[in-house]
């Protein structure tokens, strides 16, 4: 039972990557089990995004493997989707068509794809915006749409690369609560990149702390905070002690 519950969804085994003479990633191994929220926490420019590109299949590692559901996906795109701080919504497509784009690319008919996608608009708080263009949405709403698109593409694993990095602090805090709430209703595992310690602690089940250049995993932290977490938790003692520990580890 126990093994079944904690089945590894995604495993990154000993990947290494250099660009020219510069080693960017050194022997990084990551695992993600079903329904787990795992963060990679590191300084800006520490190679986090390179790890993501490798997991997404856009980059090939020099060595090591990316295993998803026991299958080797090293250097193969089309299995997991990712989301950036840039929402990358296509300005020329209505929100609903942006969201169902992954389905259309997989070959579904536009109408079927729209039907499938539209059933999620309520859950994602996007109801009523289906036929608007992205420029008519606020930054927070655009990120919601981008997340929904990510979810439409691969429902079981999502890579989120500083998705809220471009939002103001207040909107970002709201998005954290929103994201947590929404994930409870979805069967999905999330790998999350951030350099924001508070964000990582609030959202994650586990955190990998990355060192700077080359990226290697310094420490793995289990965040034992109960879910659902309330906004106020970020001022609690236990939250602060985890934060303090991470600060120490990053230095």
């Amino acid at each position: 039972m126990n093994t079944c519950q904690s089945r590894a969804k995604l495993k990154v085994n000993n990947i290494e990557k250099s660009f020219g003479d510069i080693k960017v990633i050194k022997n990084v191994s990551i695992s993600l089990v079903e329904n787990e929220f795992v963060s990679l926490l590191g300084l800006s420019g520490s190679g986090k995004s390179t790890i993501f590109n490798i997991v997404a299949g856009l980059l090939k590692p020099d060595s090591g493997h990316v295993i998803i559901d026991d299958e080797d996906y090293t250097g193969k795109t089309g299995r997991v989707s990712y989301m950036y701080q840039k929402d990358l919504l296509m300005p020329w497509k209505k929100v609903i068509d942006n969201v169902c784009l992954p389905l259309v690319i997989k070959g579904e008919k536009k109408k079927d794809a729209r039907d499938k996608a539209s059933s999620f608009f309520k859950l994602f708080g996007l109801e009523g915006f289906e036929y608007k263009y992205p420029f008519q949405l606020s930054g927070g709403m655009r990120q919601r749409a981008a997340l929904l698109r990510t979810y439409m593409f691969s429902r079981d694993i999502m890579l989120l690369d500083e998705p809220f990095g471009a939002l103001d602090a207040i909107t970002r805090a709201k998005m954290h609560v929103w994201l947590q709430d929404i994930l409870r209703g979805l069967d999905t595992s999330v790998l999350f990149i951030t350099h924001d310690i508070e964000e990582a602690v609030f959202l994650s089940d586990r955190i990998y702390i990355l060192s700077d250049k080359p990226a290697l995993i310094k420490e793995e932290i289990k965040v034992g905070l109960e879910r659902p977490r309330k906004k106020e938790i970020i001022t609690s003692d236990i939250f602060n002690s985890i934060k303090a520990h991470i600060y120490g580890s990053l230095e």
Binding site: T77, L88, I105
Partner: peptide
């Protein structure tokens, strides 16, 4: 936007789909 093209690639889009969905518009 190169990132947009990469996103489409990560979704498994082929060249024609990239041209049709991103490049032409």
């Amino acid at each position: 936007d190169e990132d947009m093209v990469n996103l489409l690639k990560s979704m498994g889009a082929n060249k024609l789909q990239i041209i049709g969905n991103a490049k032409i518009p």
